Simulated assay, not measured.
Amino acid sequence: MKTAKTTSSEVCTTQEAAHILGISVSSVQQLVEAGIIEAWKTKGGHRRIPLAAVHAYKSTPGSSSAGEAAEHGRSSAAPRPSNGRTAVLVIEDNRLQRELYAGAMGSWGLPLDLVYCDNGYKALLEIARSKPDVVLADIVMEGMDGYEVVKTILHDPELQDVSIAIVSSLDEEEMTMRGGIPAGVVFFPKPVNFDELRGYMRACCARRERETR
């Protein structure tokens, strides 16, 4: 929250921020709601954004491509350097579940580099910054859920080599109502069977090793 000393020249509206960043107003709103760009509301309910926060986001690597991903349902990501390890992006909004993943996967002795995002929009930003080898996505989350992220990956030719697994407590009928399990996507019901997940991650690591030879 800015103090009363903040002048009008130091802040901007959502529309002005969208113009500066070259993205839509709705994309700016999503960035604000995700806590990625600082903002507050006036007593009249109008959102105000510090110009410094807008320019700081604009200078972040991958910010422009991530903004486009939010608008057009796609992601543009540069290939990861070959380091012999498998990059795994875990999209999960439940803190306890993230801790369970970290504890389990950290004990397997596999060459995994784990990154965690607690919502779908942050996940798109991460994909834009550094293309992961594997995405493990929870389905039901507030805002942009894991299913939307999965569809974004599947529709982007640049991400066709990303291995995708979805995790959900939804039953078969509920999954069908959301469009079903996409072809090529692995499904793990909650509570997660970590023995099965370990086997999947081992296979992903083996694939990564073959591709980097």
Rank of each mutant, 00 (worst) to 15 (best):
M1Q: 08
V11Y: 02
E16D: 12
E16A: 15
A17H: 07
A18Y: 00
I20P: 05
L21R: 01
G22T: 04
I23T: 02
I23C: 02
S24T: 12
V25F: 05
S26E: 15
L31A: 00
L31E: 01
V32G: 02
A34P: 04
T42G: 00
G44C: 08
G45F: 07
H46C: 04
R47L: 10
R47I: 13
A56M: 07
K58D: 02
K58S: 02
S59Y: 11
T60Y: 08
S63D: 02
S63E: 07
A66I: 09
G67Q: 06
G67T: 07
E68Q: 13
A70C: 12
E71C: 10
S76Q: 10
P79F: 04
P79C: 02
R80V: 10
N83R: 10
G84L: 11
T86L: 14
V88D: 01
L100C: 04
G103A: 07
S107Q: 12
W108K: 04
W108Q: 06
L114D: 00
C117R: 15
Y121A: 01
Y121R: 07
A123C: 14
L124H: 08
A128P: 03
K131Q: 13
P132A: 04
V134M: 08
V135K: 09
A137W: 07
V140E: 06
G143R: 14
V150H: 09
V150Y: 13
T152F: 12
L154H: 01
L154D: 00
L154G: 01
P157D: 05
E158V: 06
L159C: 11
V167S: 09
S169M: 06
D171Q: 00
E173I: 06
G180C: 14
I181S: 03
P182K: 11
A183T: 04
G184C: 03
V185M: 06
F187S: 03
K190A: 03
V192P: 02
D195N: 13
E196K: 15
L197H: 04
R198N: 09
Y200A: 01
A203L: 10
C205M: 12
R208E: 12
E209G: 14
E211G: 12
T212H: 13
T212A: 14
T212C: 12
